[in-house]
């Protein structure tokens, strides 16, 4: 059953949908804090409300082409912004494009996992922020390749990637 989630800021329905999954998803965005626990619901950040309107059938986590394009643009922007000599990871994760990727919510999960499969990077924080999960064993701390493997295994266990 689908549930419509309303923006706290403007009391309007948010668009999109996500598939029933066994985990609880918490999404944080600008002016928006929503916890999704129902089998099917919708979430799109207010920033991309119009451009990311998703008309795919409820019950699918397949990202729309608009979402994929938006995601790739944000990834490129973030990577360009992290062409830096500072070792402060916190600063890089607070970078606006990275925060917007988190704001894309559950529909970005398969895209982030695909990105992780291509190249280990600091995507664990985004995945943890969106899902509330942390499948990374303590001994893998700081080891991006091991962290990527842990998240990819999590994605396979959740049937989000093949």
């Amino acid at each position: 059953m689908a549930e419509t989630i309303f923006s706290q800021a403007q009391n309007r329905p948010l668009l999109g949908s996500y598939q029933r999954t066994p985990f609880t998803v918490t999404a944080l965005g600008v002016g928006l804090v929503v916890t999704l626990q129902t089998p099917s619901a919708t979430i799109v950040d207010e920033e991309g409300f119009e451009s990311l309107a998703d008309t795919s059938p409820v019950g699918s986590l397949s990202p729309s082409s608009a979402l994929q394009a938006r995601f790739q643009a944000l990834v490129t922007q973030w990577k360009n912004n992290t062409l830096r000599v500072s070792s402060d990871l916190g600063e890089a994760l607070m970078d606006w494009p990275y925060q917007q990727i988190i704001g894309l919510g559950p529909r970005a999960i398969p895209l982030i996992l695909d990105e992780l499969r291509r190249e280990p990077n600091h995507w664990g924080w985004a995945l943890q922020s969106i899902t509330g999960e942390n499948p990374v064993p303590e001994e893998a701390a700081g080891d991006l390749r091991a962290i990527a493997q842990a998240w990819l295994q999590w994605g396979r266990d959740q049937h989000l990637i093949g």
Partner: peptide, 16 residues
């Protein structure tokens, strides 16, 4: 001999 991201912040992708 074991390259990791060392930083004293509470983020799983860092080691301390």
């Amino acid at each position: 001999e074991r390259l990791r991201w060392w930083q004293p912040i509470w983020i799983p992708s860092t080691y301390w």
